[in-house]
Nucleic acid binder design. Sequence first.
DNA 1: TAGGTGCATATTTTT
DNA 2: TATGCACCTA
Length: 848
Amino acid sequence: MTTEPPLSALDRLRQRVAAQTAASQPQAPSPVPSGGPPEAGESRLLAGLNPQQRAAVVHGGGPLLVIAGAGSGKTRVLTHRIAHLVETGRAQPGEILAITFTNKAAKEMRERLSALLGPVANRMWISTFHSACVRILRAEHEALAMRSTFTIYDSADSLRLMNQVCREEAIDSRVSTPKGLLRRISDLKNELIDPEDFARSINDEADVTVAAAYRGYQNRLRAANALDFDDIIMTTVGLLQSHPAILEHYQRRFRHILVDEYQDTNHAQYVLIRELTGRGESMGELTVVGDADQSIYAFRGATIRNIESFEDDYPNAESILLEQNYRSTQNILSAANAVIANNPNRRAKRLWTDSGAGDKVVGYVADSEHDEARFLVEELQALSGKRRWSDIAVFYRTNAQSRALEEMLIRAGIPYKVIGGTRFYERKEIKDALAYLQVVANPDDTVAMRRIFNTPRRGLGAKAEDAVAFHAQRHGMSFGAALDDVGSAESPRGQVNGLTPRAEKAIIDFRTILHVAREKAESGSAPADVLDSLMAGSGYTEELRRSDDPQDEARVENLAELHAVAADFKKMNPDATLGDFLEHVALVSDTDQLPDGDVADEGDVTLMTVHTAKGLEFPVVFVTGFEDGTFPHMRSLADPVELAEERRLAYVALTRARENLYITRASVRSQWGAPQELPASRFLDEIPEGLVDWRRAHSSADVLRRSSSTRYSKPSFDGARTGGSVKPGRLDSGSGRLDGGSAKKAAAEALSPEDREKLAAAEAAKAAEQAAAAEELKRKRAEAAQEEEEKLGALASVKPGDTLIHRKFGAGTVRAVEGRGANMVATIEFDGKSKRLMLGMAPLSLPK
DNA sequence: TAGGTGCATATTTTT
DNA sequence: TATGCACCTA
């Protein structure tokens, strides 16, 4: 029974229900109708595979590299290969280690293997790099002199800790920002360079600071019995390299290692795999699958080198190329191929399909992000009836872009879900609650302890915190341990000095709450119950309830959801401890949680970043924000290496589409408040004209500029631009940094004089036409706004419990109302179905 | 110590 | 835009 947890307004707006993009999970349609007569297992596993896929599945012996282009059926190859290994008796299920990057991919692989092999699939290790390593570390914690209850710090925890380090080590955090230091340290860890190694290789003044920060940070992590994300891999490698017996144990166990998305591995992960595979006589069988063109995590230390040099690293390796695409139509594929072909130093692939040309890619140039969103909604409405909502996905480069899209979707009443974005587990109240749990599981977790020390307010300010921290430091103990000395006459270390009686009392009360919860946890209480005890005991929920900040109401609901997650977890894993729950929460992002609700209904349109979209596919895909500065991202424009990564990202985006692909851009986009004019993405120029059906090829600003630019000897950023609706000051500073439209400029200059004249004339005509259209649009919008206002007057006083009539859905009961004025949104229940509608836009009226 | 005000600052991407 | 942080005052 999956009761829908109550969701707040904010939540629904940016709902990050997870993922269940599974509805449209990749499945390589087999060229041969499936479901033939039951045959021997082997041929069942090979049926419908093309020769290359088949070769990869049956390959035996040496290391295998499968270069799998987008949509070439690589997951199928991987799962069938594993099943084949088991069915032919070449491997025991327990000898298999399959590594993926995301929990979602791991889950999907396990499901497919269960379908192929039955319950024996449960004996395999199918997991992400991180959870496999945590599993090893927990089992071998003694060799590391760590307690098995170690905490896993996410990036927010790490940042807090680094802030502490900067303060305590007197690092000037304006010169070296904590974030920057963490970035460096992360890179170092991914290269398996520990603080001592690094200290030996210092090059300049700045490195001295980095070295000090790294050492301080690492010491504090250790003292807190905590590991950050990068430590998880690095520490595992260190463990294996320094303990031959442990290494041998795992080498013997994992005779078959398979790595998905190999192009995303970093150096540490590469070494981990190499160690586990071993070498020489007793070497295990290694299969890696990847596609250098889909490497989009270089910023996190991933290196294409690993896949490019696989044949050198493993001299007797065999390589198999999967080039037939089973996903997309030829037009989509050609567009994607044309873009990626612009990347330098790339090993060319020839992806092909036999599924026909299909529809052209649809293009649209919008005037603003709102206009872009409006186009999206119009197209969606045109698609409704022909497609289920869940067949449709909308991608963007950065999460911030979802906002405009979401607003318009809400207005139109189109159901959608956002994957990613403000993550559930990053919310303040969730982090607070988890910090309470963390402290119960691991009292030495200083970051968590200090986080909740005065949350909710219990009169413990900086002074009290310093007093405890000083005591801890002086006696070489953790902050949490130091709390036990407060007010304790028997402590051999004596009292904690510098606390007022009031503060002392507050600390003792706080400590008692934790002790009670810890006893509960140790006597086997469910994580959800421990959570209850803490939230009630500390008065956390109470404080939120009392608050009149509307956000706090949502926070209470989020905590209720966390409670539900914990209860769910217990149900799925009856033996699970509090520590297991915390590990789950740390490693399983919400992107891969919550199974899909009703498969029967139309589902939701899925919104996500391009990064999140990797590995997925949808019949209909919209890729938005194709502007230089948005996609490719601003920060990549100056650097060819980063630009190449952006191009791979674009390639990933385009290749997600099966049948229909839409690409859009907005010529003006507001970034943190201020509107910026952005030129077309260079990636758009790279798509051959003939593949795209441009519904609108120029923005109003383009048109204005073109018509007036005939007066100027060369196109420039001045004059015409200031005529736009945008503040000139902003524009100049923005556009000056961009090498805007240079490709188009170059193209114009290449024309003969007559052609140029013709072009100018044609464009002038077009300009007039579009200017008129723009005028018309403006008028319509004004009208709509007027209408909206009138309606709002009538609906402004709507409150929960009222009845409203919707043109399409009929009568409904208002359940909740948020926002004010034009942004007022109501949650209305129609006939059992709950919808969120913008009062100003949706066709709603009061009952007569 | 808490709470308010104002200013600065940020936006890639994620295990 | 929205959030956090620093600083100030009560």
